[in-house]
Amino acid sequence: MSEQTSDASTGEARKISPLVKNLLEFGPVVLFFIAYLKLKDQVFEIGGTSYEGFIIVTAGFVPLMVLSTLILWKLTGKLSRMQVMTLVVIVVFGGLSVWFNDERFFKMKPTMIYLLFGGLLGIGLLRGQSYLRVVMEEMMPLQDEGWMILTRRLCAFFFGLAVANEVIWRVMSTETWVYFKTFGLTAAMFLFFMTQAKLFQTYGIEEEGEAE
């Protein structure tokens, strides 16, 4: 099986293997986790400054994430707004952590991402619109009311994740936060959409091919 996306510049459809897509999206995160476990207790002297393993791993993660995103864009001809905004936050906060040799900036990154996403969805809701629909309509067609309900729920969920990240990185160890970032946030997102099955059944729109 392969996924099909449209090239924004040529209008041509490009196919990409789901395996390749997942490797590009989640590979850098997995490598960050593995590298952290190997280097977490080490200290590196670079230019007369001491850097803990976490900072070194962050310094490697940022360009790796940029590279994987560029490859994904090259293969599909398309990046979602969420992917672009996520990459910008990663570069900014990852760069600040490395520049100031302070891991707190990178730990705040998920908070900023979820506040950004939740805030954008909230602005749309205040205007009576579902910005989520613009991003995900092709993946799961829903009735208008279904999109508004899902958007409200996801908006609240994003704010909840932002609070959870702030609590965990501030009161728990760096290792605990790395586990939470790598597995906890991904699992939480998966479980959220799993719990929306009833909404998808109630407000889902059958495609013409399925209805025939």
Rank of each mutant, 00 (worst) to 15 (best):
T69I: 01
G128L: 08
T182V: 04
R170E: 07
Q4M: 05
A162V: 09
M148I: 14
W99Y: 10
P63T: 15
Q196M: 15
V20P: 00
V171T: 15
G47S: 03
T202L: 07
R81L: 07
T176N: 05
Q143H: 12
V29I: 13
F93K: 10
K107T: 02
G146F: 11
E212C: 00
L87W: 09
T58E: 00
E145M: 04
E175G: 12
M108N: 09
Y131R: 10
L120P: 00
S50F: 04
D41M: 01
I71K: 12
L191R: 00
Q4S: 07
Q4H: 06
E137Q: 15
G209Q: 09
L116S: 11
M139T: 08
L116W: 05
I56V: 14
E208M: 13
G204W: 02
M82S: 15
L87D: 12
I46E: 02
T176P: 01
L185E: 08
P28I: 04
P141A: 06
V84Y: 11
S80W: 13
E25I: 13
R104G: 00
C155N: 13
W177S: 03
V98M: 04
G128A: 12
V30I: 15
W169I: 01
V30P: 06
Q196K: 10
Q196F: 04
P18E: 03
I149T: 13
G124D: 02
R133Y: 07
K38E: 01
I46K: 04
S2F: 12
V66W: 05
K38W: 05
K38Y: 05
F105I: 03
V88I: 14
L24P: 02
M82F: 14
L37I: 00
L115S: 01
L185N: 07
V20H: 03
Q42R: 11
G146A: 11
L185Y: 08
V92W: 10
S97E: 00
L19W: 12
